[in-house]
Design a protein around this nucleic acid. Structure first.
Lengths: 147, 147
DNA sequence: CCAATGTCAGCATAACTGACATCA
DNA sequence: CTGATGTCAGTTGTGCTGACATTG
């Protein structure tokens, strides 16, 4: 088997966290929240955020964000309320249940980071986090060719 | 916007590489190869590998690997040949075109790592790679509950 | 008979584009 | 009118499970 490259290792690392988190949440009888839906929670302001703004923060199409938000509203973790400043906007915010589930998930992730530190060492985890928190800038455009 | 967590940062980092790689390949007129399909190349032995073995290495179902392999065969990057040791097995291996595309992609990824080093520093990239190359072990099973 | 393999078929999720009504 | 927003509809890609024939 050829040697793995960096992007694949990054994907595998993400999968390590995601599968463990999903298993832990399911073991506690929580409603299943997909990775894409988790991104919504991380992009939400406490005061509420529009779908279009969420999409920009998540780097996906407005329609993709809409789909994730709609699913979360349906299972009672998010709710909509009209924006007092503009009738065409609607603010998305968490319900009490949504905040509870969010807190549970955050706690699990923190626990997973500790477990990881126990396996590969706290310095390695710190190095990983440090490198990922830096500003990578936008993905490089085609380096050469027709500019 | 709440603070991003580690798994999301890992996903964003993977996306940084993947989108840049896809843009670069497309700019050169190469056939589009998805992330899932790239995983197949990384899991392939030079002498050929069965679909079932690929699936185990990639951590996906046999059927998922089959689908990716089939798509790559259809566009001429992989081929099948019977296994001399067992009639029920078929070895999957790269065509000449497949090896060429693989080499191009590897070169692009190496270039991207250099660009990244220029942005966040070579030590940060080395730290990232180092932490990801360690053995994380299997994703933790639900820590408590009904074992 | 049992297990592994390759394959087909169906389903769920999540991204995309296109289209359109509404409203600042 | 123009542009931003929310939404519906359709398509694609990728994973899954179930099922089944073949073969060791």
């Amino acid at each position: 088997m050829a040697e793995q490259n960096l992007p694949q290792r990054l994907g595998a690392a993400r999968h390590w966290f995601e599968s463990a988190l999903a298993a832990a949440m399911e073991a506690e009888g929580e409603q299943p929240v997909s990775y894409a839906q988790q991104l919504v929670f991380a992009a939400l302001d406490p005061e509420g955020t529009t779908v279009a703004e969420l999409a920009r923060r998540m780097g996906v199409a407005r329609q993709s964000a809409h789909q994730a938000v709609h699913a979360l509203i349906k299972i009672g973790l998010l709710r909509q309320e009209p924006d007092p400043d503009s009738a065409r906007r609607r603010r998305i915010l968490m319900t009490a249940e949504g905040r509870r589930v969010d807190a549970v998930a955050r706690a699990h992730i923190a626990g997973l980071e500790e477990i990881l530190a126990g396996r590969i060492g706290a310095p390695a985890v710190a190095a990983l986090t440090g490198a990922l928190c830096l500003d990578w800038g936008p993905p490089p455009r085609p380096p050469v060719a027709g500019s």
